[in-house]
Design a protein around this nucleic acid. Structure first.
Lengths: 162, 162
DNA sequence: CAAAATAGGGATATTTGTTATCCTTAATAG
DNA sequence: CTATTAAGGATAACAAATATCCCTATTTTG
């Protein structure tokens, strides 16, 4: 059970977009080049972010992506779910219904207890991601990344931002 | 990102094995028939439980599986990890290293901040599963399942237990 | 001792999901 | 008008999950 690589890509792209000045856009091409990713396929991840309303886009030269909300209003869960989907990791196929001893018309009222427990763990995972904002990541990165690398990166992005 | 169906199967099989009297064994054939599952493939899940030391096996007619520990000593995490593996859901491919602005020999000391956050969510999921014991599930089921169905099921299993 | 049933495990399909590429269309800036 | 962009459909390559088959060693039972 492994998350799509697009989840990693989307998170890093959002971190870059968070550093973009108001009103500027960054293209798929620039984001792909920066991260060393296949442009066409990265585009699918960015489309997912767009469909989820997390980023705003414009067409044409100087077009691309910018965040649709402030980094403090964007959670990790928003980004992860936009790309990976909102489905639970545990799928209950209700195999208890195959019990040969159950009465013919027996119909279970509550979801399977096994599923309920597994879904609680899923929810704990989501809750953790819901409580991390993109702004939290930016704050961590600004402390960890050397100032000169930060500055050069910022310059690299601005050169390509439309 | 969906867990293997074998995880569901293993959890339900352990619940059945938990009701087995001391020293008795239940075969793959019986477990597969009870749950309506493909015998050969279910066998792979049970082999995983065996390799993880969660169940004990014997060969020959009247052979099969029993729990290797008391239900109170078996957690959901034990069972899930035995079948699904212990790998994290988020795989960090360190795409930050592709940043064209970074110094040639620049080597990051700490794991990527994005990965650290995602791994914390993974750990929250594990922690939740670690805190649910198989005995907790049995307790819930004993309350939810009608007494007559429980009795018939118990009889069905005992008829086939070696 | 012989026969039947079992777990274990290797080999191999089959199916599904992920990853990736290509191409067309509509919009937009210069 | 031209170049560039996002969006999205079609399709291919690849990997993982699901499933089946078959052989072996072991053990109970008759």
């Amino acid at each position: 059970m492994i998350l799509k690589s697009q989840v990693e890509w989307a998170l890093h792209c959002c971190a870059i977009l968070a550093g973009l000045p108001e009103g500027r856009y960054l293209s798929t091409k620039a984001l792909a080049e920066f991260h060393g990713l296949p442009k066409e396929y990265l585009s699918k991840a960015l489309q997912s972010l767009s469909q989820a309303g997390l980023v705003h886009t414009t067409l044409g030269p100087s077009g691309g992506y910018r965040l649709a909300k402030a980094p403090a209003e964007l959670t990790f869960l928003d980004i992860v779910e936009a790309v990976e989907g909102k489905a639970r990791t545990f799928v209950c196929t209700n195999i208890r219904a195959n019990n040969p001893c159950r009465a013919p018309g027996y119909c279970e009222s509550t979801p399977c207890a096994v599923a309920r427990i597994m879904w609680e763990a899923d929810e704990a995972w989501r809750e953790k991601l819901r409580n991390v904002r993109l702004s939290d990541l930016i704050e961590i990165l600004s402390k960890e990344i050397p100032a000169d690398l930060m500055k050069r990166t910022f310059g690299w992005v601005l050169e390509r931002a439309g």
